[in-house]
Nucleic acid binder design. Structure first.
Lengths: 334, 334
DNA sequence: CTGAAAGCGCTTACAG
DNA sequence: CTGAAAGCGCTTACAG
């Protein structure tokens, strides 16, 4: 069943069927009705492939998901879901691109074969080779996280500001000895934006507020949390407050503190930058700046569609800075 | 830059360029070299859209992801990643379809417009309207989870067998009063396979082994775990062992038991069906049958590609029944 | 071994 | 208001 068949059954030309479908031209009520009835009766739907070839547009956006190696979280799946839904609402579909060094050929293929009209890059590092390539080709794209390169639109979380505010809040509660629990060491080494900016902002904040501060990276699991806290307590045995941007080790950090006989917040305060889901799934629940995963996904799609529709417009960017929600995990120092 | 341009530059016909690219016809070494050089120099890549239209195949598979409403897990993202990688290895891309009742139009569109050659359905219920539609249209698809309908291939976890084995194991350790922590009530109500079969198998196992048994559904968070355990202890105050198939409430269950002053496994034994990641991210770690998320994703892709390539072949299906791994959370009753 | 041509199923100037 | 025709960029019988 194709457009020619519909035209024949309705006794009109193929262009008339096309225009009834697209609404791009006036069609007399009589023909309109005949065409509509035939389409209705036959269940005909135009081929997306043929339309894409004729229109020169795929109505599909790409989404480069994080590599499988690690760093996966429920929130990232939420993000993927949010992107998929926002795209659907705009009439776009989402093509997944595996990511990571090993998967570079698959990523390149999607771009070079023009399978998508634009692409969202999910975990960008400061000097990202994919960004360089897309920028060189003039291919529309948006990153999650800035890359220090202003050739593209981006959606990001304001880690600098959030860490600064978090430390201020701890200082305001009276804490003088604070530690930062950062993301994994290799992310910091690769200049992954959030890890990089959090470390930087933490360093500046402790100087500015004249605090004792120590930052440690932390692997994404329980034993990572244990090891990280070991290192923190070794360097700073009398630390009274922790700020963590590592969502994946929240459970481990909380249970490890309990194992050390430390109560939250009477013995030690803990403040997080994490999704609400993660901050509330430990006990006690943690005060945190709740990362708005869903909104970020929606915003990334909007930004990309704007790039596609109006490449000459100013680059869209959106910095999210959610407020800290008090859940009682921060108190005065012991 | 298109195939005609390459042909002109190389001084050959467009068909020759096409055959050099596809290798479907012998091309003389001389022409082959000239074409290859021009392609190399120009960075030409054939349009996936044009190829799809001419070949009648998209080299894309669909993946219907679970609705955003709830039930999300890290393991599902792992599954999505595994599907994406396995597909890439076979030269296929993956188109995401949002799912759930609200998103049915987006799902239908992908199928009707033939944007994909086949589709994987991620969370099927026993009477799934998407399955009915796909089967009626003769569209190639594979489900994760059986649906009680044998029109399609599937990949599933043997919840019946696993629950039976789990209960046997608890009985063998001496437990006579056991409880099952199932998935959410609404999943059971919708006859979601895992929840349904777990409840069924549990009922049969306790009768068979002459145990006292009680099953409860559990919401996917901490308060869900608390409420679930409240109900279990109300009905069966002297329960000595729990079997849980609810990965999302593992943290909540463990911390709630601790809050009740119950030690694992000296006061109460806990056995799980969960991914290794989840079973080991609580403390103490839980003995569990480790759900092989990655392999299931890979297998689903293989099954779908087989359906696409050979629709007349026997329906592929694969039942996973991972062994229980002892992590010390099951002991003798107190 | 190679090329000219038809065809995949649409959209959209062009002409009336 | 409508239709015949060209074109999107490929693949693949058909003919030589």
């Amino acid at each position: 069943m194709n457009i020619g068949e519909i035209a024949r059954l309705a006794g009109v030309s193929r262009s008339t069927v096309s225009y009834v479908l697209s609404g791009k031209r006036q069609v007399s009520p009589d023909l309109h009705r005949r065409v509509t009835e035939v389409i209705e009766a036959s269940g005909y739907r135009p081929s997306a492939t043929a339309r894409a070839l004729a229109e020169g547009t795929t109505r599909t956006i790409g989404l480069a998901i994080p590599p499988l190696g690690g760093h996966l979280s429920v929130d990232q799946l939420h993000f993927v879901g949010a992107v998929s839904e926002a795209a659907a609402d705009a009439g776009y579909d989402v093509l997944l691109s595996p990511s990571g060094e090993q998967r570079r050929p698959a990523f390149d293929r999607i771009i070079e074969q023009r399978r998508v009209d634009g692409i969202i890059l999910m975990e960008t590092v400061l000097h990202d080779s994919r960004v360089a390539k897309l920028a060189a080709e003039g291919f529309p794209f948006v990153t999650i996280g800035r890359t220090g390169d202003d050739t593209h639109g981006w959606v990001d979380l304001d880690y600098s500001g959030l860490v600064a505010h978090g430390i201020e809040q701890l200082a305001a509660a009276g804490h003088r000895k604070v530690a930062l629990i950062n993301r994994q060491q290799d992310l910091l080494d690769h200049e992954y934006g959030p890890a990089y900016r959090a470390a930087d902002a933490f360093g500046k904040a402790v100087v500015e507020l004249d605090l004792d501060g120590h930052a440690e990276c932390c692997d994404d699991d329980n034993s990572g949390a244990d090891a990280c806290l070991d290192r923190i307590f070794a360097v700073m045995p009398d630390v009274t407050a922790l700020l963590t941007i590592n969502e994946r080790s929240l459970t481990g950090v909380v249970s490890d503190l309990q194992a050390r006989g430390l109560r939250i917040p009477s013995d030690i305060s803990v403040l997080a930058i994490a999704s609400e889901r993660n901050a509330t799934s430990v006990s006690p629940m943690l005060s945190a700046a709740d990362v708005p995963t869903f909104e970020m996904g929606t915003e990334a799609v909007a930004a990309l569609l704007q790039r596609i529709a109006a490449p000459e417009d100013a680059l869209p960017n959106r910095l999210f800075s959610p407020p800290f929600v008090d859940r009682g995990s921060v108190g005065a120092p012991a």
